[in-house]
Each structure stands twice: as C-alpha cells, then as structure tokens.
C-alpha cells in the first residue's frame, strides 16, 4: 500500500465524518454566545465557571469565591459580587456549572471547536460541489478547444480571456441585487467563476501532448478523438488537474468568506471555515487561535486532498503503475 494515499484518505474520511456527526459531536451550539465579557477570546483549554443569573444571563468567570451573602465573581478582569438570590446554580463552594473551550473562543465567546465541526459541513459541501462544477467546465472547455483547434479553439479561448477580464467584483455586486443568497447560488457562483484558468492549462497541456510522438502515432493508426482523450490525453493532464483542485480547495473556502462581504456568501452567523478565518483577522494579533484553528483544519484538508490526488495519479498513470 501507498503510505501517502492511505494517510490522505484516512484524514479525508475523518474530516467528512466529523462534518456529518457535527451536531452530536459539538459540545455547544455553534452560535451560543454565553458571555462576551467573560468568555471572549479565551485560549484553547480554558475552563470557566458558568454563573447562571436569575434574569436569564450567563456569566463566565475565571474564578469565584463563595461568601455567606452570595458569590464574588472574577469576570473579564474585575471582581464583582452577586447575592444568593440572584444566582440559580449556586453550590456550597461556587457554582455547579463549567464552560470549557477545548479549542478556545472567538470574540463573541462562541466555542471554536463547535463552530469548526459545524463549519466543516458548510465549507466542505460548498467546496466539493463548486469545485466539481469548475472542474467539469474547465476540463470540457479545455479539451474541446485542444481537440477541435482552429476557429473553435480561438473562440473558446477568447471567451475565457473575456471572462478573466471581467471585473468580477462588479459582477458580484450586480448579482447581489438580483439573486437571493443561498447555498446553491454560492456554489454556482464559485463554480462558474473558477474554471477559466484550469481550462487554459488543460488546453495548453493537451496541445502539447498532441505534438508528441506517441499521440501522433496513435492518430496515424486511426485512433478516434474520444479514444485519444481517454487513453492518452486525460491521464496526462491529471497532474495539473490535481494541483488545481488542491489549490482551488483552499481558495474556494476562503472566497466563500469574501462573498459574504457582498451579501452573497453564507450569513455571518452560519459557521464556515472561511468565515472563521476571515473573522479572526481582527483578533489575529491578540488571539492566535481564532484564525489558526480553522486555518489548520483547512491546511490538513488541503494536504489530505493533495495526497489522495497524487496517489490516484500514480494508480491511473499507465507509465507508473
């Protein structure tokens, strides 16, 4: 067995599994904001005392001290006192509840672990589907251009040039007024805007291949275009395709956050990896974990996809089997 491929596959399976069982695995609801003052930007591994107040609010305290009259509470750097009748979960030596941040919290006191798990669902779904869309479009256009050549090739490539030239920010602003944001729209947008570069690469590679002796020989022997495509061309564009897909994964997940800026992405409350990374920007220098936690998840996924892609190439490539 091939080590890299196995590791990659395992990692991907784990990530996918985590996404699926997120609601059962996550320790807190992804949007729970227990207490901004006491719980914001807490480092991974922090455990806090959860003081339940009678008016329905929760206070997260670094430390509590029980007094006969009530409770002294260290919250957000200052000590305050609350009476016995103001707290619902009082015990003899403090309060009954704890709030644990395994991977730290963001500036809304939301639990990063829970958001990471829930975010995997949003981000992976969007990434996989939009990349599949971009990949199909890119491969189709690239292959048709390379095989047809001549006027068709020229026309297709000029269309690609045109699309690359369009000011996409303007396109998106206009679209934001015309379409309602939804996961479907988001996937369509990301897919439709992401295939141009790939189609050029595919076309370039295939045209190069068509010049090669082994392909020429096949053509001379009367091989059909579909046969050529399947037997000689597609296997050889696997490398650039794998690179493109691996790289697209990272950029699609980050782009989804950029689209939120225009009101086209996921709403700010829906957890997504891209949103979490972009959101952490403001707190980056004060709380490294806010961007690093989703960032690490993204890196691990990207690397896993890359390993699997490389492994698949080795299996598919006739010369390396």
């Amino acid at each position: 067995m091939d080590g890299g491929f196995t590791i990659g596959l395992w990692a991907l399976t784990l990530v996918a599994l985590a996404a699926i069982v997120a609601p059962w695995l996550a320790p807190h609801p992804p949007n729970a904001q227990p207490d901004l003052v006491g719980g914001r930007l807490r480092a991974p591994g922090t455990t806090l005392h959860a003081v339940q107040l009678r008016d329905g609010r929760t206070w997260l305290a670094d430390a509590v001290a029980r007094t006969p009259e009530g409770l002294r509470i260290l919250r957000g750097g200052t000590w305050t006192t609350r009476g016995v009748d103001e707290i619902t979960n009082l015990t003899d030596d403090g309060v009954a509840d704890r709030w644990r941040y395994w991977l730290g919290s963001d500036r809304f006191s939301r639990d990063l672990l829970s958001r990471l798990l829930h975010g995997a669902r949003t981000s992976l779904l969007i990434a996989v589907l939009s990349i599949a869309l971009a990949l199909s479009l890119g491969l189709a256009v690239g292959a048709v251009a390379a095989l047809a050549g001549g006027a068709v090739d020229a026309l297709l490539m000029r269309i690609v040039d045109g699309l690359l030239t369009l000011p996409w920010l303007m396109v998106l602003i206009t679209l934001s007024a015309l379409v309602r944001p939804s996961t479907g729209t988001l996937i369509a947008l990301l897919g439709a805007s992401g295939w141009m570069g790939l189609s050029r690469i595919v076309r370039g590679e295939m045209r190069g291949l068509l010049q090669r002796d082994f392909v020429r020989a096949a053509v001379a022997m009367g091989a059909g275009r579909l046969y050529l495509l399947r037997r000689h061309l597609l296997p050889h564009v696997w490398t650039p395709v794998v690179i493109s897909v691996t790289l697209a994964l990272g950029s699609v997940i980050l782009a989804e956050a950029a689209l939120s800026f225009l009101g086209l992405g996921v709403p700010p409350t829906t957890p997504s990896w891209g949103g979490m990374i972009a959101d952490g920007r403001l707190d980056m220098l004060r709380a490294w974990w806010v961007t690093t936690v989703p960032g690490a998840a993204l890196v691990i996924t990207v690397i896993a996809v890359n390993l699997v892609g490389d492994g698949l190439r080795d299996r598919l490539d006739p010369r390396r089997a």
């Binding site: 091939d2 890299g4 590791i7 980056m284 004060r286 974990w289 890196v299």
Partner: peptide, 28 residues
C-alpha cells in the same frame, strides 16, 4: 509516491503548524 518514511510529512506538518502558532502567540 510510495515512501516508507512518509509519516515524516505528518511530523513536519505538526512542527510547522506549531511554529506558526508560536510566532503569532508571541505577537499576542
């Protein structure tokens, strides 16, 4: 792509992530 020493990659990744985190951590 077959490499018996492949787990090195994982070790390396861990080390790099930690290093990156440390850099920002100091910043914080």
């Amino acid at each position: 792509a077959h490499d018996p020493r492949f787990p090195r990659l994982v070790a390396l990744l861990t080390a790099l992530t930690l290093a990156a985190a440390l850099v920002i951590g100091c910043g914080g």
